[in-house]
Design a protein around this nucleic acid. Sequence first.
DNA 1: TTGTAAGCGTTATCAC
DNA 2: GTGATAACGCTTACAA
Lengths: 342, 342
Amino acid sequence: MANKEITIKDVARLAECSPTTVSRVINNSDHPVSQDTAEKVEAAIKKLNFSPNRIAQGLKSDKSNIIGVIVHDICDSYFAQMVKGIEEFISGHDYIVNIYNTSRSVEKELHAVSMLKANRADAIVFAGGALMDREYEQKMYSMVEQLKAQNTVLLGVTPHPFEINNISLGNKKAAAMIGDYLVKNGHKKIAFVDGPEKLYTSYLRREGLKESLVKHNFKLEDDFIFAGDFSFEGGRKAALKLIKKVDQITAVVGANDATALGLIWELNNQGIKVPADISVVGIDDLPEAKYSYPPLTTISLPIYQLGTNIGKYLLESLTTDHNSELENINMKLIERKSVKKI
Amino acid sequence: MANKEITIKDVARLAECSPTTVSRVINNSDHPVSQDTAEKVEAAIKKLNFSPNRIAQGLKSDKSNIIGVIVHDICDSYFAQMVKGIEEFISGHDYIVNIYNTSRSVEKELHAVSMLKANRADAIVFAGGALMDREYEQKMYSMVEQLKAQNTVLLGVTPHPFEINNISLGNKKAAAMIGDYLVKNGHKKIAFVDGPEKLYTSYLRREGLKESLVKHNFKLEDDFIFAGDFSFEGGRKAALKLIKKVDQITAVVGANDATALGLIWELNNQGIKVPADISVVGIDDLPEAKYSYPPLTTISLPIYQLGTNIGKYLLESLTTDHNSELENINMKLIERKSVKKI
DNA sequence: TTGTAAGCGTTATCAC
DNA sequence: GTGATAACGCTTACAA
């Protein structure tokens, strides 16, 4: 590895002072340093183009400056937006944003956390919903305990089955709003295309819709719940199954926008008119939701903004003493053209 | 900071041996360790749930295990796919994938590189095209020189104005293929919606198209080059300008798929039929390209696969001595329904 | 087969 | 105002 790494010692030699003094200059220490030497040090730093080795600093300070972000699928607009928001806020502040893409695999999620633990991440964001799986819960629980003992800041977006700061996005409420809205528009026969199995978020959205319908004395029939996976392709496949029952259904709710967009596309493709023949609704309000045919009625969850809020919260938690609060986002029904009033 | 961090010493104490021995067990060292002590160490590790501090390891080995990936916009499918591919390959191997989202800002690109330098990243991938900007080139040049002195593995996707391993995606060739294809189909009046200003990739794609047309004794008129920014919205805005000249144009090439998709959407929206009234082509073959109305004819650049190739290349470069080769991807014209034969 | 000690680059403590 | 020294957790000669 014969390395030419420039260290604080090289700077000290050139500036004719001790490493200690250089360190003081670098860190704007309270400890007094004469104008004169400070300038010499600055000059030497510039000349050698020195930047302090953060790894050594990390070892000393027991901080890695790593913020881990665990996402399910970075190609999913939802996660891409959140990551972008977090990154936007964080990366101007000397922190590393370390992404893990887990494809909702228990094994990969666990691997990600153990990697972050080994790297002494300062904070971990569980950006995706929790997996409903015994192994996941158990192993995660014990790792989380240790991470807490190491003072790692832990943040879950949506509930997780271990005691960390879980922010509720209001998944249940979002789905309930859709239920209320559909009923208000005269829909009675409502179908649902589910999210990934084992994902708690799927459960919440499904339950939200169920509860809303029950409240209005209707019911989400089991026969009208179709499998999906939060993807466009999943929505398309669901549409193919759903068309066999179009006559019995007036509206279908996609567990997220990607699903709803897939539904709309395939319904169009099969010659079924949205919303004339069937209405479609989503959740998330992805940027692309307004460009479907017809534009998608959905619940807006401003995820990019959530990302910046998360970034802000993490930064505060990591750099100040007082407990900082994470500002939550507001959801809102975005009425476009994919729902028919009956 | 009162930290409860568990160290190699704690393990040694519990296993009744020296830290050295523990280290040897952890690293599967060649140095012989008796079956018996090895087991005791393993037991202690498990009991304490110890994982070695990678920061300390990094300081010793002068490796950070950080791979920096600089992207322009993680919300752009193109970059999301590449990152996913890289991550997929890398993160199972004890490396950290550190994303920077620069929005093509000179300042942010430079900041990203200097952060990665300070963190002693083992490798940096310049995933987006180079910016055509004097300050960018100059400052980048000097940082790159230092990074090379530090043995950082540097990789540019598409050409960059500093001497690193730049892989050519064949941007020029891709655009030329489109030109050839359009001419073959009888198109003579061809327009182009450009990528971001200052981006070298934009230049390459534009030039590729120009050269192809010249070869066939046609010309890409300056009046027929519209501003764009590689985004759907950019494509939409360009469509609004372009419609004033639809009569003089038979086909329009989007600098990338996002642009082409925006074009198609807004043309439809304005009542202009694709491809009956005007043909549209893109470059990239994003997953969504096959779901536009009509499905988009484009050049396929399998970016996810490029990502895994990059991951493989980096891993090899970082862990073996012999020079490894990066396998490039093959482009291919994907003929769908957005081009009319005249 | 095991262990001791030095050192990676930085900073906090203490002395001058 | 300045600087020697020890320490962060780990690995690696070198000894035993």
